Simulated assay, not measured.
Amino acid sequence: MARQLPHESQKKYLVYAGTGTDLIFNHGIELPGFASFPLLEKPESRAILANQMKAIVDLAGEMKVGCILDAPTWMANVDRAAPLGYGAGQLVDVNRDGVALMEEVRQAAGHDDVLVSACIGPRYDPYADIPPLSVEDARQYHSAQMSSLKDTSVDLVTAYTFNRPSEAAGCILAARNVDLPIIMSLVVETDGCLADGTKLVEAIDWIDAATNAAASFFMVNCAHPTHFSRALKNHPRLKGIVANASICSHAELDEADELDEGDPRQLGKQIAEIARDNPSIIVFGGCCGTDMRHLKSMARELS
């Protein structure tokens, strides 16, 4: 059945995109290349993925808000999965299986405001020094993963951690071509700008112009509130913030041997303050370094 998406609803939604660091530092699970989709292959690790999402479903039900369940498919595209031994044919099954697991969690949830999303990642490491990707090249590249999601129970796709406007635009067009609603989540540096120096709101406007505003809306993820709070500008198309626990830069986090979990209570207060200044924001969540303590703090402060 067709479900209301966040921008069509009057509810707030929670999302948890910090599963990777939780798996590594709190569960002691190795993630080669930061890919979590190989965990779908074993019952014990599959159960851990399901329990991560069950926790956010339970919290959302307790707080009477909606939630978005992201399938563990951020790295399940051709170039980033190839070093792990996965071919294009296998990735079709991986993407479908990730959605199927989230559907199992939804069916067990017991309330209606649960959306299943397929998590889409950029073609390359977003923090690497790589050549630019044109809008058309990005559209063709991301079309493979989008096509694999057709005829699944997925409600939408969420593209996380994109920091190149041209690739973001191409990814949005690939989703449009298969009639999948898409949330585009951009990532900023400590100065609130994308990696190429583009201001966040300027990037959103450029992407919308290049795609005829085909994205459902935009979010920011994988950055601390102190990095992006001044960059949001109450932009009407920016409706989600998915924050890191740590104030460290991406380079510092990449080199860290220990988890920087920040201050969950303070993070909740910072998110609530941003929500007051940017009333168009309806999706809130945690990214790297966060766990249910951070999400509970956000939900409590937002309520």
Rank of each mutant, 00 (worst) to 15 (best):
H27L: 00
D277V: 09
N77G: 13
G85E: 13
H294V: 10
L302V: 12
G33F: 10
V94K: 04
E301I: 09
A275L: 06
M184S: 12
M75D: 03
L39S: 04
H235P: 01
A138D: 07
E255S: 15
A209M: 04
P165S: 12
A272S: 09
I271C: 11
R300S: 13
R230W: 08
M63C: 11
L101R: 06
G262T: 06
L40T: 09
T198H: 06
D70M: 09
D263S: 15
E202T: 13
E62N: 11
C193F: 02
H294R: 10
L40D: 05
L69W: 08
D151Q: 14
G61D: 01
S9G: 08
D196E: 13
T73G: 02
I172G: 02
T19L: 10
A118G: 12
L253V: 10
H111I: 10
I281L: 11
Y141P: 05
S216K: 04
G18Q: 09
I183A: 04
H7F: 13
R123V: 00
I204M: 07
H227K: 01
F34W: 12
M146H: 04
R46T: 08
R3C: 08
D208R: 05
D263W: 11
G28H: 09
D263V: 12
T19P: 02
R123K: 15
A71V: 03
C287M: 14
G66C: 09
W206A: 12
D112I: 00
L194W: 06
N177Y: 01
I282V: 15
A128K: 15
P126F: 08
C119S: 14
Y16W: 15
